[in-house]
Structure formats: C-alpha cells, structure tokens
Nucleic acid binder design. Structure first.
Length: 267
DNA sequence: AATTGTTCCAACCGCGTCTGG
DNA sequence: GCCAGACGCGGTTGGAACAAT
C-alpha cells in the first residue's frame, strides 16, 4: 500500500541546486506565480520534482527571505513560541517574517537547544532539567495539564505576538546552567516560563482557505495569512466551545492545526 | 600540512491532510 | 462517501565548512 513516488526519480536531478536551475525557477515563478508545483518543473524546464522546486523556492529563493543571524529577541520569541506550539516550525516561522520553517528548525536544533540546556532547561519540555534520580523533566509530569489548559494563559486565539519582551524567571544565562540541579528540585510546577504573550484578535485572517488563493502569492509566508485556532490545543474540543470556524461571516476558514494534545504533551 | 572531529544547513524523505472528481 | 493526486509539514541526512589536534 505504498505511496507512489512524487515524481519520476529516474529523470530528476538531486542534490544541490545550480545557479542555472535557480534562475530557471525564479524566472518561471516571476512569470507565472507559485502554484501547481507538480507541473512546474516540466513547464520551467527543470529536471527536478515539484517538491524539490517548492522547497528551493520557499527556503532559499523567495525574495522576501531575511538572511543573516537571528537576534537575541528572535531567539527568545522562538523559545516562547516553541513552548507554546511545540515543533510546529511553520507556525513559528509565521511569526518571524522572512524566516522559513526549515531555517528555524535548523536554528533550534543547532543553537537554541544548546542555549536552553545551558540555562538548565529541557528544550523539549521547557522545564528545568531535573538531575535527581536521573530523570529529566520530560519524564515527569508536564507543566500544564493537557486538557483543559488554563484559559487565562491564552486569552484568545488566533493571535499575533505584539510583544517581543521575554522574561524567564529562570536564572539568567550568566548562571551557565550549572545550577540546574539545585534550582529545579524545589521549583514550582509552572515556575519558569513566563509566556508573556500579547495576543491580538485583530490579526488578519484569510478570507478564504489558502488553497484557493491566487497562484501568485506575494505574501512572506502562507502562515502569516493563515488563521490559527488554538482552542483544541487548549483543550477545547471541536464542536464544543470553539467558535473559530464560525467567527467569520466571510466564509469558511481552514484550521489545519486543530488536534488534541498527545499524552504527555503540553503547551 | 595532514588528519580527525564538530558544526551547520540545504535538501531529501515519508506521512498526514486537503481537495476535486 | 470514496479515492487518487497534490500540497505542506516535520524529521532526518549528506556533505561542505570550520575547528582542533
């Protein structure tokens, strides 16, 4: 019952893109816009599969991409968003204009994980690493119950993060993470992560599902236009109190990210 | 200078979801 | 309602660049 390959692999290039391929892809998308990635390679004269073209465009060639280092504020925002959303890199990227999910994912794995570890925080749970009995925070009780979550923490969703101010009650980076064992044992249950997030209901939502958008998207990322319903994440089951889907008279919205928290997962 | 180890990131892969017939 | 095709996402990998010995 295997899925057929997305493209005819025997006739496609793999590996690093050449400048010529890049120019072909850029030229085609400038002329025709994004969309129909499957047929794009043939139309553009590229020996690549559609997925590869899409990835190259999204992660490297898009003109609105911001290259360069992340700032400390970016770091803290990513940490906060990760605490809230988990490994939803595309959602996180949507809050950082010009950044891609792949870039943030890589940055998380190479920099921020280490940064959190140096703070004595478990990068998965955002809780202090407990060295007692060798258990890490990930094996102990979660910070927040999976359902329902305290509604007061997130007064509303969909959201836009207005504030980039971050405060961790946790020791400052200068503590170098070496004090984690002493500080974690008596830590309160939800002690360390101050998700000081200002949520803004006025965040623009798409008036139509993304898939129906015109091919030539000019927006930085699709997620910046995409409504995000966190109600399910907060323990509100679809069909219960969540009214996101009916909030707009303009028509249906797509909330692809509705899903219950998994066991042991929390926000 | 050569070798080995580490870091980083672009790209690939497989799967879940969405959409149209 | 079902199915197949297409899209988008997250995890993983390959290899280039850099650092240490």
């Amino acid at each position: 019952m295997g899925r057929s390959p997305c493209c005819e692999k025997a006739h496609t290039n793999k590996g690093a893109w050449t400048k010529e391929e890049d120019q072909r892809l850029i030229g085609y998308i400038k002329a025709h816009g994004e969309g129909c990635w499957r047929s794009l390679p043939k139309a553009a004269g590229l020996l690549r599969c559609g997925k590869s073209c899409r990835l190259r465009w999204m992660n490297y060639l898009r003109p609105d991409l911001k290259r360069g280092n992340f700032t400390d504020d970016d770091d803290e925002l990513i940490i906060k968003l990760h605490a809230l959303l988990g490994n939803k890199w595309s959602l996180i990227a949507g809050q950082l204009p010009g950044r891609t999910d792949n870039e943030i994912k890589n940055y998380w794995n190479t920099h921020i994980k280490r940064k959190l570890l140096n703070r004595g925080m478990d990068p998965h749970t955002h809780r202090p690493i407990s060295t007692a009995s060798g258990l890490t925070a990930s094996t102990t009780a979660p910070v927040f119950p999976s359902s329902p979550a305290p509604a007061s923490r997130l007064a509303s969703a969909p959201f836009a993060f207005q504030s980039s101010t971050v405060s961790f009650a946790r020791p400052s980076p200068s503590d170098d993470g070496h004090s984690s064992s002493g500080g974690s044992s008596d830590a309160p249950r939800c002690p360390d992560l101050n998700l000081d997030l200002d949520l803004d209901l006025s965040m623009s939502l798409p008036s139509s599902p993304p898939k129906t958008a015109p091919p030539a998207k000019s927006t930085p990322t699709s997620h910046q236009q995409q409504g995000i319903c966190l109600c399910y994440h907060l323990g509100v089951r679809d069909g219960e109190a969540c009214t996101c889907k009916t909030a707009s008279p303009a028509g249906p919205r797509v909330f692809r990210f509705l899903r219950p928290l998994e066991e042991g997962q929390y926000i």
